Simulated assay, not measured.
Amino acid sequence: MRITDCALLHLQLSEPAEWSNDEARILRWHKDKHRLDAHWGLSDLGRSRLQIAHVQSWPVIKEFSRHFPLLIAERRFHALANIVLLCPEAHDLYDGTGLIGTSTMLAASALMWERPEALDPLKIFLQTTINAPGGHQTENTNVLHAADILTRAHSAEVDHFLDPWEQRLRDAQRAIDRDEATSIHPGDRAIFAMPRFKL
Rank of each mutant, 00 (worst) to 15 (best):
L71Y: 03
A73W: 10
H39L: 12
H30P: 02
C87H: 08
W58C: 04
D120N: 14
D5E: 10
E23M: 00
V158C: 04
Q51Y: 09
F125K: 02
A108E: 01
K62G: 05
W29A: 11
I100T: 02
A7N: 01
R174C: 10
L42G: 05
L9A: 08
A153I: 05
E74V: 07
E63M: 08
C87S: 11
L126W: 06
F64R: 08
S14L: 10
D32T: 14
T4G: 13
I184F: 06
M1D: 09
L86M: 10
H39C: 10
R47S: 00
L11F: 08
Q127W: 15
W165V: 03
F161Y: 15
V60T: 14
T4C: 07
W113Q: 01
Q12Y: 11
L106T: 14
R66K: 15
H78T: 14
N131G: 04
H34V: 01
M112N: 06
D148E: 14
S183P: 04
Q56H: 14
V158R: 00
L9I: 03
I124S: 13
F64A: 15
H54V: 00
G46N: 07
Q56R: 12
K198T: 11
P121G: 03
L169S: 05
F77D: 02
A81D: 13
T182S: 11
H34N: 07
L126G: 03
R47T: 08
H154V: 06
A107D: 09
R76M: 15
D32S: 15
D177Q: 12
S103L: 13
W40F: 11
H10R: 07
L85Q: 06
D32R: 15
N131T: 09
D37V: 00
R189P: 01
L27H: 04
L169F: 08
L71F: 07
L99D: 10
S65Q: 10
A17L: 10
R2M: 05
D95A: 13
D179C: 05
S109K: 00
C87M: 11
E114D: 14
D32M: 07
L70A: 09
M194L: 05
H67L: 09
Q173T: 13
A175C: 04
T4D: 12
T138Q: 14
R178N: 14
L42F: 04
H136F: 14
T182E: 10
L199I: 12
I100E: 00
Q167L: 12
A7I: 04
E139N: 13
E23S: 01
I149P: 00
F68G: 01
A73C: 08
D177W: 06
D37N: 08
E63Y: 10
W165T: 00
A17N: 10
S57E: 15
L144E: 13
F68C: 01
E139W: 15
D159G: 10
H91G: 04
